[in-house]
Amino acid sequence: MSTTPHREPGELFGPRATLFADVLSIGLATTLTCLPLITAPAALSTACAVLRGAANHEPTTAGRYFALLRQRLRPGDLAAGALALAATLLVIADLALAGAGLPGARLFATAATALTAVALTVALRACARPESLTDWRAALRAAATDTARDPAGSALVLLAVATAALCAWMMLPLALLTPGPLALALAGVARRRETAGTKGLKDGT
């Protein structure tokens, strides 16, 4: 990826267009890696790590994505994937029961939706944390703190998920590419949080 702010002589696309193309290629790579389902957390975490490196002018390519991914898929990564899959199936089952017309179903569905939104936000913010590359428990703890202390960032995460889902619903082939922009949004929210924290420390001193 070009690190210069302007287009070089003979270059067809500027650095922003190049980054956009890289994001789409990483999105496709992430989708393919997510197909076994239990690999989804590691796949999304790796995508966030690669895109987070763009701020330091590191390559944001599918090649670097797979190179970093080869270091993942440890037992902890697969356990995180199994837990995420089990939680997803539980939510689907609960919402199906709520839709069956049982007493108190509307209240239960509302509560289940709210809890699911919070859990999803924490899980996605954990994927964007650098700790997720080595320690999922530490990443989840930090993500839970970020979710509670940064409601605006959490809203941005849910908005990014809703946008990705809407794009996939409007045009099904886009579903193959949406993990890339979603990972970019997650990395951006995480960097926003880190920048705000650094600014707060400077202001405090």
Rank of each mutant, 00 (worst) to 15 (best):
A79H: 07
C127N: 03
P103K: 00
P179A: 00
L186Y: 05
L51I: 12
D146Y: 02
A105E: 01
E8K: 11
L102N: 03
L140R: 09
A123Y: 06
A86I: 07
G63E: 13
A109H: 03
G99Q: 08
V50G: 07
G104L: 02
R7M: 11
L184D: 08
R106S: 14
A162L: 10
R72V: 13
T60K: 03
A62Y: 03
A98F: 09
E194A: 15
A160E: 02
L140K: 09
R149D: 12
P173Q: 01
L140E: 06
L37R: 12
T145L: 12
A165L: 14
R106Y: 09
C127G: 01
G99H: 09
A183Y: 05
A111D: 13
V122D: 00
T60R: 11
V91S: 10
A185F: 03
L44M: 08
D77G: 06
A86H: 07
V157G: 04
T3K: 05
K199I: 13
R149Y: 00
A164F: 02
T39Q: 04
I38K: 04
G27V: 10
T3M: 09
A87I: 07
T18F: 05
L102V: 14
A128Q: 08
A112E: 04
R52A: 15
T30I: 05
L107G: 15
A126L: 01
G76K: 12
R106G: 03
C34E: 14
A21H: 05
A67C: 04
R70F: 00
V157Q: 02
A126G: 04
S2G: 15
A40T: 15
E58G: 06
A139I: 03
P5S: 06
G188A: 07
C167P: 00
V50C: 06
L156P: 00
T39A: 08
A168D: 00
A117Y: 00
A123N: 02
K199V: 14
A100Y: 06
S45C: 08
A105S: 13
E8F: 01
T4E: 13
L37N: 02
A62S: 14
T4K: 11
T145H: 08
T205G: 13
A93W: 12
T113G: 15
L140V: 14
A185D: 03
D203L: 15
L102C: 03
V91H: 09
A148D: 07
A109N: 08
T110W: 11
G10P: 00
A117K: 00
P9W: 00
G180K: 09
E58D: 12
L184M: 06
Q71L: 13
I38A: 13
G27N: 03
P5L: 11
A138M: 05
L95K: 05
P36A: 06
L201R: 15
G200W: 04
R149T: 12
A196T: 14
P75E: 06
K202D: 14
A17K: 00
K199E: 15
G188K: 04
A98H: 08
